[in-house]
Simulated assay, not measured.
Amino acid sequence: MKIIAFTGAGISKQSNIPTFMERPDVREKLFRSYADRHHEEYNEVIRQLKKNMNGAKPNDAHYALAEYHIPIITMNIDGLHRLAGSDALELHGGLPEDDEMDIAYSLYDKPVLYGDPAPNYQLAYEMVYTLQPGDVFLVVGCSFHTGISVDLREVAKSRGARIIEIQEDAAHNVRKILEELLNYN
């Protein structure tokens, strides 16, 4: 049985990183058109995002996925999967380095903005297309508010994979579900 995890903001919520749904003031500024027209304001939004994420530590959900070597597709830009030891496919890139903050408005993939191409989407589809009946698509903290989130679930379903959703208390439930799936006691 193969397991692929698909993670969103809900996995990092217990690491004290607010979701974009909780921060509509930020979400509305993460558009390429906004970055192009309002350089300084956009740069400040990215500085605030980075400040909110600096010092955040992976929680047990991140560590469990790393310990069990589960391939991960993530919509997150917080880098917590990497810090936990996973090599996650980051659909929306990451955050600029400190020395790039003054030019954040001009960067692509740091993060991928609404209106930008998302080059890792194709890789995500290819990963999910490897699922077969009996495999598991483990969705952790992903809403249905983005096209890719809906699409990847549909692809997994079409491949015959079982979809398991963890939308609450990921820090406790991910390890529990993985142990049940992999018969660890």
Rank of each mutant, 00 (worst) to 15 (best):
M1E: 15
M1D: 14
G8E: 08
G10M: 02
K13T: 13
M21D: 15
E22A: 09
P24G: 10
D25S: 13
V26K: 09
R27S: 13
K29D: 02
F31W: 15
R32G: 10
S33K: 11
A35E: 04
H38C: 07
E41M: 11
Y42M: 06
Y42D: 02
Q48M: 09
Q48E: 15
N54E: 11
N54H: 13
D60Q: 15
A64G: 06
A66S: 08
Y68Q: 09
H69S: 14
I73R: 04
G79N: 03
H81C: 08
L83Q: 15
A88D: 11
E90T: 15
E90P: 12
L91K: 01
G94T: 12
G94I: 05
L95V: 03
L95F: 00
E97C: 11
E100I: 08
A104P: 07
L107R: 11
Y108C: 12
K110Q: 14
A118E: 14
P119A: 07
N120V: 01
E126G: 09
V128R: 06
Y129M: 15
Q132G: 09
G134N: 05
V136C: 13
V136S: 11
F137L: 01
L138A: 01
G141P: 06
H145C: 13
S149L: 01
L152Y: 00
R153M: 01
E154S: 09
E154N: 09
V155P: 00
I163H: 00
I166P: 05
D169G: 09
H172K: 13
H172M: 12
V174R: 07
V174W: 01
V174P: 11
L178F: 05
E179I: 07
E179P: 15
N183H: 14
